Simulated scan of single mutants.
Amino acid sequence: MKKEDINTLIKLRKDIHQHPDLSNDEAATAHRIKDFFEPLKPDKVIDKIGGNGLAFIYEGKGKGPTTMIRCELDGLPISEESTAKHKSIVEGKSHTCGHDGHMAIVAGVGMTLAENPISKGRVILLYQPAEETGEGAEKVIKDKRFPKIKPDFAFALHNLPGYPKNEIVLKKGAFAAASKGMVIHLKGKTSHAAHPENGNSPAIAMAKIIAGLQALPESMNGFSLITVINAVLGEIAFGTTPGEATIRATLRTYDDKTMEQLTRFAGELVAVIAKSHHLGIDISYTESFASTVNDDLAWEHVNQAAKKLNLKTKHIRNPFRWSEDFGQFSIDSPTMFFGLGSGKSQPQLHNSNFDFPDTIIATGVAIFGQIIHQINR
């Protein structure tokens, strides 16, 4: 890309960075993106797909595959610690995961498509809402307009701190873990703290459940992890024996089948302990992410693109433990999710001082452009 084009994308990235929106509330960010794409003249635009999502469609004259390139619209509820001039101006919100940079990269792909139209098939540039909460991809897929743009291939990247800038990180099969939030509510009976025998405190059961959940993965085959992230017992009232408790935990596995087993075993463990203490229970789940699984042919397209561009590649053996809701697209379409190194000394994702490095934007645009060239030109 020309230097002035890169500067345009950096300006867009910094503008988005200053004005982050949280999951399911990305209307202002979507408006900025839509304004940017107006002069790029996509053949069609699908507005508010899956919520605040946007799909920009570029069509070739000949028949061919539909290729989807996806990025994320949402930021995080994290206060940014930065001295940069483009620091977030929205209190308690920030782009400390790099979605602003991902959006700029896909905007650059739009600039490339406007200058060099594809010859066959279609390219869908999807700006997906609510990735951070694991809701957005599923909402897009369930949107009644999605079947019209269902891709033959779907690609996405994520910047990866800890890897050299512009290095392409690849893996066949599972790339990122499945995860879900488990919420356990225990119901006992309050009493005066002077007479706990008149009530039924969930305190001991709560302690057993916390210990049991964290030990449960030891009995599983393959990778699994349960992290208790929050526990609340009763109220701050020194004259009252508690009658209720809530435990929140995150479950993680590398594949969806193991997640089903872990979920079942965790539920059974909680039920047994609660029953032995004569407690009522309610279990619910939130922020569920499917495992992000790479298709072999889609993987080959990215690997070949990296070679054509003479980019350094890193082939990893184990999936990442974090989750990505791009895995929802993996269920019904051949997908490929890969990493773009954002620097060995770059702060980690979700750190309060993370800021996407603009020096990797051109590489992101180039590799998506090359993938499209291989499939749609």
Rank of each mutant, 00 (worst) to 15 (best):
E197T: 01
S23Y: 02
I141Y: 04
I236S: 15
E4W: 11
T250P: 10
N351F: 08
A156V: 10
G327D: 06
I168W: 07
I360P: 05
Q348W: 14
G234S: 09
E218F: 13
E167S: 10
D358C: 01
N7L: 13
S88E: 07
P357L: 01
N200Y: 02
I204M: 13
V302C: 10
S345W: 08
A55G: 07
K93D: 07
Y58E: 07
P117D: 10
G364V: 01
P319K: 03
L54A: 05
P196W: 06
S219K: 14
K11G: 09
L269G: 05
H102K: 06
K14L: 12
N294Y: 04
Q214P: 04
F265Q: 14
H102Q: 12
V183F: 15
S276I: 04
F153A: 00
H158L: 03
I168C: 05
E81R: 09
S291H: 05
L311C: 06
T258I: 08
G341A: 01
D15F: 09
A203I: 13
L9V: 07
H278W: 05
N52F: 11
M182F: 07
V106C: 02
D47N: 14
K180H: 12
A84Q: 12
Q348F: 13
N230P: 09
G98E: 05
P347K: 02
D143K: 06
P334C: 04
T359V: 11
F329H: 06
S333E: 01
D74W: 04
E72A: 04
A305P: 00
I316N: 01
Q128I: 03
Y254F: 14
G188Y: 11
G101Q: 02
P202R: 03
D295N: 15
A366Y: 02
G188W: 05
T29S: 10
P129R: 04
F56V: 07
N52D: 15
I105T: 09
H17C: 01
N166L: 04
P164V: 06
E81H: 12
G60M: 07
T112C: 10
D295R: 11
L125Q: 01
F265K: 15
S179W: 08
T253D: 09
S345H: 14
G188C: 03
K3N: 15
R122D: 03
F338P: 09
H315G: 01
G50H: 03
S119K: 15
L9C: 08
G173F: 07
I10R: 11
E324Q: 09
A130K: 05
K187T: 14
S284L: 08
K61A: 11
R252A: 00
M68A: 14
P242W: 02
H301S: 12
S94W: 05
V365H: 08
T66W: 01
K63P: 08
T250S: 12
E218L: 12
K44Y: 10
N198R: 11
T112Q: 14
V90I: 15
M68F: 07
M220P: 10
H185A: 12
F368A: 01
C97S: 03
F337A: 08
I371G: 07
P39N: 07
I247T: 03
P147I: 10
D100W: 00
V270H: 02
A366D: 15
D100T: 03
T112R: 14
K93T: 04
H31V: 09
S333D: 11
L251H: 08
L170M: 01
